[in-house]
Design a protein around this nucleic acid. Structure first.
Lengths: 150, 150
DNA sequence: TTGTCTGCAAAAGCTTTGCATGAAT
DNA sequence: ATTCATGCAAAGCTTTTGCAGACAA
């Protein structure tokens, strides 16, 4: 795994340092896809290796610039990072357990262009997060009152 | 104007204090609709009256709780507040000048429910911001390269 | 009077940055 | 050897909170 990530790093013009390789390996290995800087720092540093918060933030931002990662905000104001592989998508987040589902809907793409035109905007992107309750949380605590907007 | 806001405040169970009346009056008077706490503090305090940041934040949050205001994040990570009047809507923001347009689209409402079902979520709300360029900025600096996601 | 609110200032939470040491090429 | 990256710690920025004095009812 080390060789792969080292080459990938050099490919995008970054030196193959330990923190960078650890962070990239972490994203490539995990089943989960969405992590905050704190998540990454905790997971990457636990193996007796100390990697500072400053480096984590710097590396994550460099990876976003290099299109290795994408960043955004989902739950709170914390920045969430995910691998920039696979197709464009939006997110649905469970307000009870935090579970995140990704989805892609062509209807949104089409409508956002039309809506932009109706208000005189050339739309080039969007930030869309659906808030709700996943199957499991609906079963255990079905409380579909109106918590959020919409 | 003072009488109105004082009564409105008491109606929602809040004492009619100077900071609260000033803040509410500010939102009611302005043509613009979207303000950060810093915006409000700057605008409300300039008239020789000193209102602290602490109070601004407390009052804004109380107004959100009382359904007088709505809050969310549009541009940055700063919280943006708007009057909770008129219908539900989403926002389009110009990435060049910051201009904000509000819109409502029933297609989104319908689709978000269907999408939720397809991933097993009961969707109760959403956070949607379209990013683009307004008419004016398209005219002066038409640079529709791919800055943002989508 | 009584309970609430304010201004001040300090703290909290997340992220960024300066700097000297240390590592990659 | 040179250039760049790291760890540490301090600062930045937005928002929250504790507290004593002040105000609304």
């Amino acid at each position: 795994m080390s060789i792969d990530v080292a080459e990938e790093l050099r490919r995008v013009g970054l030196r193959a340092t330990v923190p960078r390789m650890k962070v990239l390996s972490f994203f490539l290995d995990e089943q989960q896809r969405h992590f905050t800087a704190e998540d990454v720092c905790r997971q990457v540093a636990d193996e007796k290796l100390n990697i500072s918060f400053g480096s984590i933030y710097r590396v994550l931002q460099q990876f976003v610039d290099a299109k290795i990662l994408r960043s955004g905000t989902l739950h709170s104001t914390k920045i969430v990072y995910e691998l920039n592989n696979g197709p464009e998508h939006d997110h649905a987040i469970c307000m009870s357990c935090g579970k995140i589902e990704e989805f892609y809907d062509p209807v949104f793409d089409a409508r956002q262009k039309e809506i932009g035109e109706s208000v005189g905007f050339l739309v080039v992107g969007r930030q869309l997060v659906l808030q709700g309750y996943c199957v499991k949380c609906r079963a255990t605590a079905p409380k579909p009152t109106d918590n959020a907007k919409g």
